[in-house]
Design a binder for these strands. Structure first.
Lengths: 337, 337
DNA sequence: AGCCGACTTGTGACCGATCACATCCGTGCG
DNA sequence: CGCACGGATGTGATCGGTCACAAGTCGGCT
């Protein structure tokens, strides 16, 4: 650990700038905040002084008086997954571009107490908004009912009365299943994510509706937990059954499923077609390369920041944004034999 | 977006508490900061008032006068990967347990200007320390040379004169290669991460040394970029060559490699043994399940927070912590035929 | 010339904590 | 009985900005 430079001259304040520029501190403040009614010459003199002293205003002082912090609180839940962490990454990038700082509260496990504590910490830090990235239904419910006193938005696939951005899980799932139906499959099983997950529920719904529209019956879905291990377990459970295709709640479970199927002597896609969800970067190199639904998590993160900005500036609630995932056909699907 | 409750009564200040408790604001401050010389009865009266008013001190006001914020800046670079984001997640968890907030600056691409801007933003927010999670050599160099005026530590695998935590990439790589050697392999290739990556360099060094110690020659490594796609490309390039084993810089590249090898008609592990690095959760379900080096990223994140605390409290530089990854044998390695 | 109004600039209070120092009080001792 | 002393408590300044308002400057118009 490198120690701080003890001899560092104390950072310049607005008064230092004012003295150097030969004006009052208020005039400096005006220049800082781009207020009108400052003569061009004065403005330039002040700006020169600012540069010369390498002056940067203190966020603490500013936050104290304005009660705004140019800071946003970001809550995420669950282990580090490709989707949520990519969304968070791009949210952070977008926020930085708009000169907002992001205070992060990643909760591995969510319970009421921790969540409340995390949210309150954020509020105390004067965050101007709180953004939640989760697929967990109860987390959303808890946070919504908390009345934080701060604008709140969520990156989630359900919930109409709150402002949010999302990727359309329902439409994506329907598209995936339609693909299998178009190939001629009729016995299409589903490995779902956990029941608390709103995304999982939406995908189940899309799967069921797509089957229903084609007059096909939906067998009970198998519940996994998003991990490859749970997909593998599901595959072993499924191996004896009669089916020709599986729609998986995500790519990891598809990977585990394929593993189990292969072990059971079934070939993908010759015996069983498999479709995943997310299009994680590895999916193209599974064996076989996985057909899956591509989701644009980067754009989702940017969307989230845009909604925050919109609400923060003019109180206008922009229309809930929902992008539809796209089918990426690779080698794990084929017509049934 | 849920609007904030406009009618919310303004948050209580230290003066409100003082009035209710019938003491001066200074006494409240003493109670707040657990200072001695407060009579027990008084202390209890103040604490009751605090609870009654749901008073929480303002971090902005406190930061303004103390110049400390109970906030830590976290810089990460590159796209969202399992290792770095898991480390960041657990760092965040540990920080929260110690009642520190984390301001996050995730930079997708690093250039001097963005990095400097990000770091300065953090410093202006009065962070008490800056933690860097990266494997990028120049990022570390840039940040080290910046003299931020704030304690700085890095989660990196190189650098002796700075304080840091890490997983021992060199030892891990040697262990992986020794495993292949023990199986009887003599033609062991390496697919390395990008040259700017310190982790990649350490792994190359470990691979080279392990070979050298056994009197084996190291062919030129192939350079990838950590992605499965680059592993695939490396595999196609390699397919004609003479070799019986490949040590891959990470699991994703191993996946891509196996894909290319399989396409080329080679079987893993019958024709080629493959070892990965990281033990991402999916690795157990690759086909074949991947032998790889397990890294404890969760512990790494917690270690990082512990070092921060140690340096923040007593200026003692704890010994650089470096944990050794563990070999996980699965089905992608076997003796050469 | 005198006055008005628009534009520019300055002054002092304030946000909500901590810090340095002053004051008060009870007790023990000479 | 008076005084010194140490623990408990209070007072006012301070951190570095913004806000509300006062004041100064200048040109144009009657």
């Amino acid at each position: 650990m490198v120690k701080a430079d003890e001899e560092r001259t104390k950072a310049a304040t607005i008064f230092d700038v004012a003295r150097l520029a030969g004006v009052s501190h208020q005039t400096v403040s005006r220049v800082l905040n781009d207020l009108p009614n400052v003569r061009q010459a004065t403005r330039e003199r002040v700006e020169r002084a600012i540069r010369q002293l390498r002056y940067v205003p203190s966020p603490a002082a500013r936050a104290l008086v304005t009660r705004r912090s140019r800071t946003i609180g970001l809550i995420t839940t669950g282990p580090s997954e490709f989707g949520s962490s990519t969304t968070a990454l791009f949210f952070n990038e977008a926020a930085r571009e708009d000169r907002y700082a992001v205070i992060m509260a990643s909760l591995l496990k969510v319970d009421g107490a921790t969540l409340r504590q995390a949210a309150e910490t954020l509020v105390r830090q004067n965050v101007e908004a709180i953004v939640l990235i989760t697929s967990n239904r109860s987390t959303l419910g808890l946070l919504q009912s908390m009345d934080l006193g701060v604008p709140f938005m969520a990156v989630v696939s359900q919930g109409s009365e709150l402002h949010r951005v999302s990727l359309d899980q329902y439409a994506g799932a329907r598209r995936a299943v339609r693909h299998l139906i178009e190939l001629g499959h009729t016995e299409i099983r589903h490995i779902a994510g956990p029941a608390e997950s709103m995304d999982a529920l939406e995908r189940v719904r899309g799967w069921r509706d797509a089957l229903g529209e084609s007059g096909l019956v939906a067998a009970e879905p198998i519940i996994g937990d998003w991990t490859a291990a749970s997909g593998y377990a599901a595959g072993r459970q499924l191996a004896g059954d009669r089916f020709t295709a599986v729609f998986c709640g995500n790519d990891q479970m598809a990977l585990g499923l394929i593993h189990a199927l292969t072990e059971a002597g079934l070939s993908v896609p010759a015996d069983v077609s498999v479709v995943g969800f997310d299009d994680i970067p590895e999916a193209a190199h599974f064996s076989p390369p996985l057909t899956t639904m591509h989701q644009d998590f980067a754009q989702l993160g940017r969307d989230a920041m845009n909604v925050v900005l919109a609400v923060l500036s003019d109180d206008q609630a922009p229309n809930p944004l929902s992008r539809v995932p796209e089918l990426v056909e690779r080698a794990s699907t084929a017509p049934p034999r």
